[in-house]
């Protein structure tokens, strides 16, 4: 565990707390893509299946259980508690365009051709692109609530912080995990546009608005 990973994981935790806080305080899930949130449930379930047969550490166990349960809770909030505030006509990205190719890629590019390894690899690829429905939705509406942008900034920062962690681990442990690294760089890259607007507008006190 190094400082970059710890900060990355804390950013990930923070993003979830921000999202739940947004939904509870505004009593709404407006501006949040249900599809992206559903993809995260799939990501966590396929990646953390090792909970059933491996013990790594208490930290690792608690975080995995938290990510699975909180992502399920978010889906519940969107699907039941705040359902009337969700507008499916804005959430139109086709997730099969993400899930299908990620699964095929996981079948081809993996470390071992085993069920759990393929599921892990699939989860890494899917996580990299799971934000697409959310970004697509914001592109359509051209705006986002400030709290939603804080959520996305924390979520993007999480994987971005894993990159210096991988560099650190390369120099201290000599290990490289090419699947995670390549997917992590792609994932972070997808946020660059968003980060630009976040830093130049939201952090200057302006509303998040995309040019028409």
């Amino acid at each position: 565990m190094n400082i970059f990973r710890l900060l990355g994981d804390l950013a990930h935790l923070a993003s979830i707390f921000i999202l739940v806080h947004k939904m509870h305080t505004t009593r709404s899930c407006r501006g949040i893509s249900f599809k992206t949130q559903a993809l995260y449930v799939l990501v966590f379930l396929t990646r953390y299946i090792d909970l059933l047969y491996t013990w790594i550490s208490l930290y690792n166990f608690v975080m995995k259980v938290f990510f699975i349960s909180s992502s399920g809770y978010i889906l519940y909030l969107m699907k039941y508690r705040f359902r009337p505030t969700h507008d499916p006509s804005l959430d139109t990205f086709k997730v099969e365009y993400l899930v299908g190719p990620c699964f095929v890629l996981a079948l081809i590019f993996n470390y071992r051709f085993e069920v759990t390894e393929i599921l892990w690899t699939f989860s890494i690829y899917l996580e990299a692109v799971a934000i697409f429905p959310q970004l697509f939705m914001m592109q359509r509406t051209g705006e986002a609530e400030t709290i939603t942008t804080h959520y996305l900034a924390a979520l993007g920062a999480y994987r971005a912080l894993y990159i210096p962690n991988w560099i650190y681990r390369y120099f201290t442990e000599g290990t490289v995990d090419p699947i995670a690294v390549v997917a992590g760089i792609v994932q972070t890259g997808l946020y660059l546009d968003f980060f630009y607007v976040y830093v130049t507008k939201v952090l200057q006190g302006q509303k998040f608005e995309l040019p028409a």
Binding site: I56, M63, F67, Y111, T175, D177
Partner: peptide, 10 residues
């Protein structure tokens, strides 16, 4: 040999 992936990462 196991895969080169970091099993301890989230």
């Amino acid at each position: 040999a196991g895969p080169p992936r970091a099993h301890d990462e989230l």
